[in-house]
Design a protein around this nucleic acid. Structure first.
Length: 274
DNA sequence: CGCCAGGATACCC
DNA sequence: GGGTATCATGGC
């Protein structure tokens, strides 16, 4: 299935730190496990992507997953025309980033794991969880064998010692408690998607192991609250070194999370990571 | 060996 | 409110 879209760059999305199961296969090709499925995507040219799926799945699933109805060019242009040199460079460098509409529970667990870890380590932990607790699948088209991300019911029943063997460290009990909160209905991720960003952050922070940064990541990447603005060590570095801690988030009200992604992706490039 | 990673928490003042 | 030791693990 050939798709034409501006501001859609596979490498930039795969390396933007928002998704942990999208990996490079060859020069312009990426494999993605999401929503219990596996697809391969090829960057044919700047505005052309080829996805291994039929038109029905594209319209029903992947068009929404990659947020293809949203005009990221409008945000990029606004930054390119603005007075802020760092943002001009960041928007230019990451103009193909889109905020994916990922599964909320997968994001909840993934970003609990993410605390005090680097991205390769987060990916490895998530794969071990999927191999242990997910369903084994085989993709018809590519023949790829993969494992789905387990649901809250499965992880709520996981044993702490078993999780600890997956090298999750002290986060094991956070994962079990968060999964139980979802199963018991103490946390309603569907409702949080409709709630205000502030309300969803406050609710998520009531879970042990979720602080301000992780709550903002879950809101941005799992609930699609694009006004969320997660501040991790990289963002702290940007705000300190390029803005002397006087960055005004409010000038991007309603879409600060998109701006944040450009900043995050660009500063890591400046430091030679990702 | 020490330091760092898309941090959070308990405890201190 | 702000500082800090600690948490488990891997990579450098």
């Amino acid at each position: 299935m050939i798709i034409e879209s501006k501001n859609f760059n596979l490498k930039q999305i795969a390396d933007s730190g928002q998704c942990f199961r999208m990996n490079q296969i060859s020069d312009n090709t990426y494999g993605l496990i999401a929503l219990d499925r596996y697809i391969e995507l090829e960057q044919v040219s700047e505005d052309v992507i080829n996805i291994t799926c039929n038109e029905g799945d594209y319209k029903q699933i992947w068009k929404n997953y990659f947020d293809l109805d949203y005009d990221y060019g409008r945000i990029v242009d606004k930054l390119l025309e603005g007075p802020d040199e760092f943002l001009r460079k960041a928007a230019s460098y990451g103009s193909g980033i889109r905020i994916l509409r990922q599964d909320p529970f997968e994001m909840l667990i993934s970003f609990i794991i993410s605390q005090n870890k680097n991205i390769p380590s987060i990916k490895a932990c998530i794969e071990r969880i999927c191999e242990t607790y997910g369903n084994k699948m085989e993709d018809d088209i590519s023949g790829k064998v993969y494992y789905t991300f387990p649901g809250p019911d499965i992880l709520a029943e996981a044993k702490k010692e078993d999780l600890r063997r997956l090298k999750l460290g002290y986060r094991d009990e956070y994962i079990i408690a968060a999964s139980r909160a979802v199963v018991l209905g103490h946390i309603d991720l569907g409702a949080l998607m409709l709630a205000s960003h502030q309300e969803s952050v406050n609710t998520l922070k009531s879970i042990r192991g979720i602080g301000d940064k992780v709550a903002n990541c879950i809101s941005l990447f799992g609930l699609h609250h694009i006004e969320a603005f997660p501040i991790d060590v990289w963002m702290r570095r940007v705000l300190e070194e390029f803005y002397e801690n006087e960055f005004d988030v409010d000038q991007f009200q309603g879409y600060a999370g998109i701006v944040q992604q450009y900043m995050f992706y660009y500063v890591r490039h400046l430091y030679g990571v990702g």
